[in-house]
Design a protein around this nucleic acid. Structure first.
Lengths: 253, 253
DNA sequence: CTTGACCCTCACGTAACGTAATTATTTATC
DNA sequence: GATAAATAATTACGTTACGTGAGGGTCAAG
C-alpha cells in the first residue's frame, strides 16, 4: 500500500503543507519519490507520522520530536519528565495570570462603580414570571416541571450564590460578544468552551437534557425579553449563541 | 524629564529593540523625535509602556494590547474575562498533556521493564549509614539532629511513599541532566523549578534551612558515593546541581 | 581630536506551517 | 484519444515579537 501526499494527509489528519514541511526539515521523508517527482509514502511512514503527531500534541517542538523518535525508551522517559516539569511551570504561570486578571477585573469594577443593575438586569426576578408563562405556553408540562424544580433549588440560594451565578452569566455573554466582534464562528473552540460553561451554569437551575437545551436556544431567539437582553451585549448574540448551543449539543454525535 | 531609548529601556526592563518595534507598529510612539533622529520619551510614555507591559505579561498579543489600552474600562473587563476563559482552556489542556505524559512514562517503563534497582540505587538503605557517618564527621552535631529527625519521620513511611519519593527524585535528576545536555545554565528558570522541587522533596526528610541546603550542595560534590550516583545521570551533574542549589538559595536576596 | 558609548536604519532569522501562484501530471469522462 | 478536473510539484511571501548583527551617524569626556 502506497500513499500520495493527499491520501496520507487525509488519513492522518494533517495538511499537505505539513507533509511537505516535514519532508523539507527531514522529519518525515517519503518512502521514495516517483519519476514524476511525486512523494510516495508507505505503511512505515504512516506509523512514524503517528508517533510524530503524538509528541507534537504534547507541545514538543519539532526539533525535540526529532530527538524523541530516534532515542531509546530510557531517554524518552527522561525527556518526557523534563517536559512535564515545563508544562507544570506553564500551568503555574496560567494560574497566576488568571488570578491577576480576577484582581484587575475587581479593580476596574470598583474603579468605575459599574452598575450591577445595568449589567445583570436580565436576572430580574419580576421578569422571571413572564419567562415562565412563555415557557409553559410553548413547551407545555415539561416546562412546568422544570419551573418547579428550578424554584425548589433556588429558594435555598443566598445572595452570594445569586451574585456568583450572575457574574458567571455576564462573563459568558461578554466573552461571547467579544468573539463575535473578532469574527469568530459558533463552532470555534473558545466559543464552545464558553457554551460549555453556560451549559453547566444552567444545570444549576434544573436537570438539563439535550432537548431542553435545544429548546433554550430557540427560546433565546424567539422570546422578546431574552432577545432584548442578549442584544444589549451584541446585536448578533441571540442567533450566534443559539447556533453555538446547537453545535455544542450535536458535536458529540 | 526626557528619556532616550536606552534609558527608557533600562528603567522599564525591556530591550531597545522592543522599543523600536513598538514604535514601528505604532504601539508606543516617542513623545517627539530630535533633529538628530533620536527618539525621546516623556513621563507619559513611561506610564503607557507600563500598561503595555502589564497586558503583555498576561499573554495578550500586541494587537490586543493595542485594543486594551485604548478601550474603556467596560470593554477592558469584557476582554479580560474572555482572555481568562482562554487561559483556562489552556490550563485544561496542560492538565491533559501532563496526564498523557504520565501514562506514557508508565507505559514505556512497563514496556522495557526498566530495572528499578538501576534507576534508584542511590536510595539504597545500606549506603545510608555511610552517608550519615560522613555527614556527622563533616558537619558535627547538627547532622546528628537531622539524622534523628529523618529517621523519626521515615520509619512511618510505607513502600508507597518510598516509591513516590524515589520516582520524584529520579524525575528531577533526569530532568536536570536533560537540561545539561541542552546546554542550559544553573540559573535558568526551568532548572530552578526542578531545584525547587528538589528542595521540597528534601524537606520531607527533615526540616530544611538554607544553611543545611548549602551543605547538601557541598556534600553532593565532595562525597564519593553521592558523586558517583549523580554522575550516572550526567558527568557534570554534581557541580551543575550544586551551583543551581546555591543560586536557588541566594536568588531571593 | 579621538574614543567609546550611544543613536539610527536596514535586514535577516526564528517555528511551523497557511496561503496563494504557477506549472506539470494523473485520473476520469466523453 | 481529447479534454477537464483533481492532484502533484516548486516557489515564495505572511505570520509573532522581537534578537542579533551590519554599517554608519551623534554626543560627551578626556
Amino acid at each position: 500500500m502506497r500513499y500520495k501526499v493527499k491520501e496520507l494527509a487525509k488519513i492522518s489528519g494533517v495538511s499537505v503543507r505539513t507533509l511537505h514541511w516535514y519532508d523539507e526539515i527531514g522529519l518525515l521523508k517519503p518512502a521514495y519519490i516517483g519519476a514524476n517527482g511525486y512523494r510516495y509514502y508507505e505503511q512505515e511512514q504512516l506509523l512514524l507520522l503517528q508517533q510524530i503527531l503524538f509528541f507534537r500534541e504534547l507541545d514538543f517542538k519539532l526539533d525535540d520530536v526529532q530527538q524523541m523518535i530516534t532515542s531509546c525508551d530510557f531517554d524518552k522517559i527522561k525527556t518526557l519528565l523534563a517536559h512535564k516539569s515545563n508544562l507544570q511551570l506553564n500551568q503555574d504561570r496560567m494560574s497566576k495570570l488568571i488570578q491577576t486578571i480576577d484582581k484587575t477585573v475587581v479593580h476596574l469594577k470598583g474603579n468605575k462603580m459599574i452598575n450591577e443593575h445595568e449589567l445583570y438586569e436580565g436576572f430580574d426576578l419580576a421578569k422571571q414570571k413572564e419567562y415562565e408563562q412563555y415557557l409553559v405556553k410553548h413547551h407545555g408540562t415539561i416546562a412546568e416541571d422544570l419551573i418547579a424544580q428550578c424554584n425548589k433549588r433556588t429558594v435555598s440560594w443566598g445572595s452570594q450564590e445569586w451574585k456568583e451565578i450572575k457574574e458567571e452569566g455576564a462573563s459568558i455573554l461578554q466573552g461571547l460578544s467579544v468573539y463575535i466582534e473578532k469574527g469568530a464562528g459558533p463552532r470555534d473552540e473558545e466559543v464552545q468552551h464558553l457554551i460549555q460553561q453556560h451549559y453547566k451554569m444552567i444545570g444549576r437551575f434544573y436537570d438539563l437534557t439535550k432537548d431542553i437545551y435545544l429548546s433554550l436556544a430557540q427560546l433565546y431567539c424567539e422570546h422578546p425579553g431574552f432577545r432584548k437582553f442578549f442584544e444589549e451585549h451584541s446585536q448578533q448574540l441571540p442567533e450566534f449563541m443559539a447556533e453555538a448551543m446547537r453545535v455544542y449539543i450535536y458535536k458529540d454525535l
